[in-house]
């Protein structure tokens, strides 16, 4: 792969993701004020002393945005990595072993997917205590159903190839078949899928926080910041839109990269459709 072959749209996406990651990692060093430090008037306008204005309690919006990047990205990433590992592991085991285990996993997965993710999350979060790790776990488990489905389809595509059969006939174990034969051939679509899941996680976490069921205050996270400032909208105060835009931009950036990865995958397969 050559750098020059990466289209402009993907470069924009990569740059955006890099910026968000930079903010997340170095938040305490680049944020002008503290995360929940009250520094001024309520909802002071953009520009002037506070670049993006202040929020409903008089906290600096830019600082909260930078700290919010940290929370949002950390939680979404943790959930995605967890859901990905879980979904991949189970789907590959199902695809390679087949038979009863495959049936069992797949039917249970169908059942999980029969309830819309958000509704499922609402029901579960209504019952469980509010902890960060529970939130991450719930997001991961719910999302792993999607990963499982894609993973199984991709792994089955490869698992029926004759080189996998050849490895079986040689007497190779399940571990070798999964990690040496199948996994290297599924990396490209899976990378795209990881991006998709990450984008989804960010949106999902933000939605939950917006509904008051995600990250709990006073910690800053983008969805929660929209919730905090939503009452200002009627008065024409756009503070709620700033974190909303941050979510949108980061998700767009991720989707731009994913779009490119998917096109790349399909051209590798030699398909002439770019669907």
């Amino acid at each position: 792969m050559r750098l020059r072959a990466i289209p402009l749209s993907a470069w924009i996406g990569i740059a955006g993701i890099a910026l968000a990651l930079f903010c997340a990692i170095f938040a305490p060093f680049i944020a002008p004020h503290g995360e929940s430090e009250i520094v001024g008037e309520i909802w002071s306008p953009m520009g002037g002393e506070f670049l993006l204005g202040t929020d409903n309690l008089g906290r600096d919006l830019l600082s909260r945005l930078i700290f919010g990047a940290r929370t949002t990205i950390f939680v979404a990433l943790a959930a995605t990595i967890l859901s990905f590992s879980l979904g991949m592991l189970l789907s590959f085991i199902a695809a390679v072993t087949g038979g009863l285990i495959d049936q069992l996993f797949s039917r249970f997965n169908d059942l999980m997917m029969a309830i819309p993710t958000l509704i499922f999350a609402l029901v579960v979060l209504a019952v469980l205590p509010q902890h960060l790790w529970i939130l991450i776990l719930v997001m991961a488990v719910l999302d792993s159903t999607r990963v499982y489905r894609i993973g199984r389809a991709v792994a089955l595509d490869v698992a029926v190839m004759e080189f996998v059969e050849a490895a079986r006939l040689r007497g190779e174990g399940t571990g070798w078949i999964i990690f040496r034969e199948i996994l290297p051939n599924t990396l490209s679509p899976l990378l795209a899928e990881f991006g998709l899941r990450f984008a989804f996680s960010i949106l999902f976490l933000s939605t939950l926080s917006f509904l008051g069921l995600g990250i709990q205050p006073p910690a800053a996270d983008w969805g929660g910041m929209v919730k905090d400032n939503k009452d200002g909208i009627i008065f024409g105060i756009s503070a709620a839109l700033v974190p909303g835009a941050a979510i949108a931009l980061l998700t767009i950036c991720i989707n731009l990269v994913v779009d490119w990865l998917m096109k790349r995958t399909s051209s590798l397969k030699g398909g002439r459709g770019d669907a």
Partner: peptide
């Protein structure tokens, strides 16, 4: 490009954006 952007927008963002423009301003 537009549809890619649209699927990346959280519903609440779109909602408040529309409120700010069409209802408030």
């Amino acid at each position: 490009v537009f549809s890619l952007a649209a699927i990346s927008l959280p519903e609440f963002f779109v909602g408040y954006l529309l409120i700010l423009f069409f209802a408030v301003q």
